[in-house]
Design a binder for these strands. Structure first.
Lengths: 246, 246
DNA sequence: CGGTGGCTGTGCGTGTTCTCATCGTCGCCG
DNA sequence: CGGCGACGATGAGAACACGCACAGCCACCG
């Protein structure tokens, strides 16, 4: 089931209307903090654990709808944790966190069951998007919720990664796509450059803050070119997207 | 009976609308885990057992619509298990798992009864496809559910392994066929190279992800050659297939 | 042995990301 | 009302990663 909050954000809810529950497992406190904050912002209920045993215990009584699981835990192997989790919660989808270089290695088979993974360092938008996808497909949320974001005559399909305005197809690069998704998930709402940087770029991004301006400019060229603009600048505050009409 | 989920995936259901039930029997935990995960994702209900006695017991009260049975079990010979299974569930189809070098002639006799087998190491797409076939043919699911996938003017018959585009027959190798089937079972949806690798290649495949790129290029040559392309690259995300028109 | 199918490795072209620098513009304040 | 300073937009181009082609190897099979 989906509802639309007063802010215009679309929230995932369970069939009974209660908030989605997510368990976050990572041994680095900074990561669990970061994720908990971001996921709570989605309107979800979050519980976190720092190791495998804690994860199993928490899973037992928290009964989450999805789990974010770091593959590198201090007390036990990621696969062992996965196995025990599965015994507790057979159908719960898992989003794995892995180091960039450790990939390809033991990841084989993990995405096969409808699970998914992201590599560290990740961007919060990416984690949230994948989690939403997993939850949507697992049936923990209402299955009618679809994967298309719409703002005015602009549409973005999260499954096919397709974007079009007024029926005309628009090609975006990966970063442009993530940025636009973030804007469109928060329509009519000013997003500061800091917020955008924190959500759309990976958490270890050390670069210049003006990449945001740059990518906004790219987006405008592709989306607003020769049309009524939908992306607006609020000088000193940030950017927002809204339907061209209003 | 088949239903189509919001994602466009087609699910097998029993005549009464309840999910199909599958029993997985293997002594290696990693295998049962892997299979359970993948088969659950198909929307099926899974129970697993690690040996012959467990299998018989579980079969008795779980009453599965199909069984995946490793021929090499610790406690008893595969044929013995099969016999006892048959006493419990006379009509249930069985998918045998065997080692590559195992005597194929002995297995060959077994498949005469409408059963089937795959050799280890297998790919998940293969196991899922065979199981679907077995269940469909056994009548546990609606018999009218057919075996043809269609995307635009491209058709793929899972029974006859025939592929054609715009009526023109296309010859594919085994790997190409599996890859195309996976794409066509998830139309208009971006599939990452990792997902593809996990589903289409065998679980012990240690190679590089660029085999996927290679086989995509093979498929394009055969399917998209000189026509409106149906296979699309989403740089940094993966591949997807969609009808040429849209 | 020739043919087919499956895969590895490498190298190239190009798309993508990001930095730096410059130019434009908005708004404040004298 | 005019000018200045801060902020934002945009152009150029460097560095990098990604996707893809090509060539060759191995295994299997008739």
């Amino acid at each position: 089931m989906t509802t639309t909050s007063p802010q215009g954000r679309t929230e995932l809810l369970r069939p009974d209307g209660s908030p989605v529950r997510v368990l976050v497992v990572d041994d680095e406190l900074s990561i669990t903090e970061l994720l908990s904050m971001a996921l709570r912002y989605e309107g979800w209920q979050i519980r976190s654990a720092g190791d495998g045993t804690g994860a199993i215990q928490t899973a037992r009584d928290f009964r989450p709808d999805a789990v974010v699981l770091d593959m590198m835990l201090p007390d036990m192997d990621g696969l062992t944790v996965l196995g025990r989790l599965r015994r507790e919660l057979p159908d719960v989808p898992v989003l794995f966190l892995t180091a960039k270089d450790a990939v390809e290695d033991r990841i084989a088979g993990l995405t096969a069951g409808g699970d998914d993974y992201v590599t560290k360092p990740f961007s919060l938008e990416e984690v949230v998007a994948r989690l939403r996808g997993l939850i949507r497909r697992s049936g923990a949320a209402d299955r009618r919720s679809d994967s298309v974001l719409v703002v005015g005559d602009l549409t973005l399909d999260e499954d096919s990664h397709e974007v079009s305005r007024a029926g005309e197809h628009i090609h975006l690069t990966a970063t442009e796509f993530e940025l636009l998704r973030f804007l469109m998930r928060n329509p009519r709402r000013v997003l500061s450059k800091a917020q955008i940087l924190d959500r759309v770029w990976s958490y270890d991004f050390g670069g210049q803050a003006n990449v945001v301006e740059l990518y906004i400019s790219y987006l405008r060229r592709k989306i607003d070119a020769g049309r009524e603009p939908m992306i607006h600048t609020r000088r000193g505050a940030g950017y927002l997207i809204k339907p061209a009409a209003s």
